[in-house]
Design a protein around this nucleic acid. Structure first.
Lengths: 265, 265
DNA sequence: ACGACCTTAACGGTGCGTTAAAGTTT
DNA sequence: CAAACTTTAACGCACCGTTAAGGTCG
């Protein structure tokens, strides 16, 4: 019985203190565990935690910062030790920019969700579009103007025929340097290559640059492709990206992948 | 050696397929594990996962929904099975309201952070304020008009003296029915009681109603209390709460807790 | 036979809520 | 003695990134 002689400061067990402070006992245990807010005394025998009334103010500071959205880790940095006030200012500034970002993201996201809902109401929902990063890849290519889109396929077949079969990689397709609104179509058939490839006048050897790509898949017919192009175009516009290079078409097995290189802004 | 007779659909191992799709192999494994997006074939011997090109479109749908902010669990609900389109609409609508909420929260939060930053620039930072819920509590009380704030303490002492000491609980304080801007001060000293208490004309027996309270702690002097009152007042205004009942003062050991009952709106 | 690829398993990060099993206080 | 309280321990949530240890493919 620790009921010593003089009047000892009132101690509260965890449940009592929790009720006073308006948090759960579990929360207090957790805060103790992570070193954010500790009991003033721990009975070494029973390991019971004991708190004092003065600590209510300390806990209130913690909870007020938490209410602003600061993480527990950062709250710990913001309250203890020397120069806590400077750190607190820095952490709140950081939190401010983070909150501004998430505000903008939420606003943008909301627009996109609304667009998606509109889209779902339509008869024929839009093709899904995804963003991905693509490393640079070595290719052999032939660039030329063509009279129609399909013509580039012939060029591609000729290109493949001109290459040693050991050197051709797994991806082939076309770049479109000028298309659609332009009166002339200028395309570039390409095939990825590996290792050393003999240089010839028939084709160029170059790198497709690394890029961030907005992509959609479609069947290899004009109607499907047109709606995929439209979907990607719309997608880019809605998110405020801008086109950053020639559009790419990748020939997959029985599918076409439409890729628009994009940059933010 | 599964190289059977006829031309089999091209199969891609997880790494290849991941590269094509622009995600990591780990992500594909995870999606498989949670049943969101599964390989078309799993070798029963080696457990290698194999994917087909057609699945790129399916994965794109998943990623597009994820990009909108839908959780993986909800994406699974949105794509598989019957009536997927209705569910998709419902889930997106739900996501929309959630996003609107978080948008409002971020906007409000930003204001509060700015206010906190302003506050930190000041000489004397504001007292922290916290929100908490309080259950109803039985009290004995004496309500009266007083000439000054301190007078209520005398009333409180008299009240305590009038009660059997076995019945008094652990909380005492005062309610302020009219104060500050009002020309007359009307307070109500109270002490929490337990079990049965003899009814007398000296005091009322009643319940402090359950409430949501905006609280601050201060020293029991007029200057400290004034700044705490001001802090809570300001806090309530900034968050768009409104006062919902008499203000409460709780007498703690060597501290005072200021509580304003509030309601949203 | 070596390197690149595949497998499962498990921890980490955020902030606690929620059992569960067992000891303590009143 | 029973009720109410305390303790530690552990899982759960969301979404994978990141080792780690050990088989498989070209």
């Amino acid at each position: 019985m620790a009921a010593g002689g003089k009047q000892v400061e009132a101690r509260y067990r965890i449940g009592q203190f929790a009720k006073l402070a308006g948090v759960t006992a579990k929360t207090l245990r957790f805060y103790d565990e992570i070193g954010l807010f500790r009991p003033s005394v721990i009975d070494p025998l029973t390991r019971y935690r004991f708190y004092q009334l003065e600590q209510l103010q300390e806990l209130a500071s913690v909870l007020a910062l938490k209410d602003l959205g600061l993480s527990l880790t950062n709250i710990r940095r913001a309250i203890g030790g020397v120069a806590a006030s400077e750190r607190r200012y820095a952490l709140l500034s950081e939190l401010k920019t983070a909150t501004e970002r998430s505000l903008r993201r939420a606003a943008g996201s909301l627009e996109l969700i609304n667009a998606a809902l509109e889209d779902l109401r339509g008869i024929r929902p839009t093709v899904p579009v995804v963003l991905k990063h693509q490393a640079a890849v070595s290719v052999a290519s032939v660039r030329t103007t063509v009279a129609s889109y399909v013509e580039i396929e012939t060029i591609g077949r000729d290109l493949r025929a001109a290459l040693p079969s050991t050197a051709v990689g797994d991806r082939c397709g076309a770049l479109w340097h000028r298309c659609e609104p332009s009166p002339v179509l200028e395309g570039e058939a390409f095939i990825s290559v590996t290792g050393r490839v003999p240089a010839r006048q028939l084709y160029d050897l170059k790198q497709l640059p690394a890029a961030t790509l907005a992509c959609a898949y479609c069947l290899p017919d004009d109607v499907s492709a047109a709606s995929a192009y439209h979907a990607v175009d719309n997608w880019i516009t809605m998110r405020g990206y801008r086109l950053a290079g020639p559009k790419r078409e990748i020939y997959l097995d029985r599918m076409l992948e439409i890729q628009f290189p994009v940059l933010p802004g």
